[in-house]
């Protein structure tokens, strides 16, 4: 079985697995970084969103063999050193999560937006977040929380 070296949340991890194994299973089952969630396996729901060199990616459709050793992977566990990213604080203030299962993916997707665009409009928020499903229906609070975090940037 091939061996891979990955940069995740600032640390190097060695993994032995088949080339086709999605990054999602590597994170969750090999490395016990379980904050990144499995929702669909098709890139349709966004629950597995991580950052690859700062860009939001669906880890369920990223085979480990497609990753370069020097690419930096960030998961929800590495988004902030102490869980105090402005979005995480805004998510608490707005009491966004219900079941909470999709929220790591939502926050990672939103974080990539604020990295590129610190003051997104409502339309930009909705367009950027449209790939992330929430079955509990927290969408209106997600918009408010992103706006709150953006306001905190000013």
């Amino acid at each position: 079985m091939p061996a891979y070296s990955l940069q995740i949340n600032g640390k190097t991890h060695k993994v032995n697995t088949e080339a086709s194994t999605p990054l999602l299973w590597v994170l969750r089952e090999h490395l016990a970084l379980s904050g990144t969630k499995f929702g669909c396996g098709l890139g349709q729901c966004g629950a597995c969103t991580v950052h690859l060199d700062g860009s939001p990616m669906r880890s369920c459709t990223l085979p480990i063999s497609s990753l370069q050793e020097n690419q930096e992977i960030t998961t929800i566990e590495g988004l902030s050193p102490n869980g105090k990213h402005p979005l995480q604080e805004a998510w608490i203030e707005e009491q966004v999560p219900q079941c909470g299962y999709c929220q790591s993916g939502q926050i990672m997707q939103a974080a990539a937006l604020l990295d590129q665009n610190s003051q997104p409009t409502r339309e930009e928020i909705i367009s950027h977040m449209n790939g992330n499903l929430c079955r509990c229906g927290t969408y209106t609070r997600i918009v408010k929380a992103i706006q709150r975090a953006a306001d905190a940037n000013t």
Binding site: A32, I76, E77, L79, Q95, V96, P97, Y101
Partner: peptide
């Protein structure tokens, strides 16, 4: 009052069964 479970649901630490090893 804030919900008790919310902080663990924004930093990835809330444990769902699927997360258990």
């Amino acid at each position: 009052l804030p919900r008790y479970d919310v902080p663990a649901k924004v930093d990835g630490s809330a444990q769902f069964a699927i997360d258990i090893q």
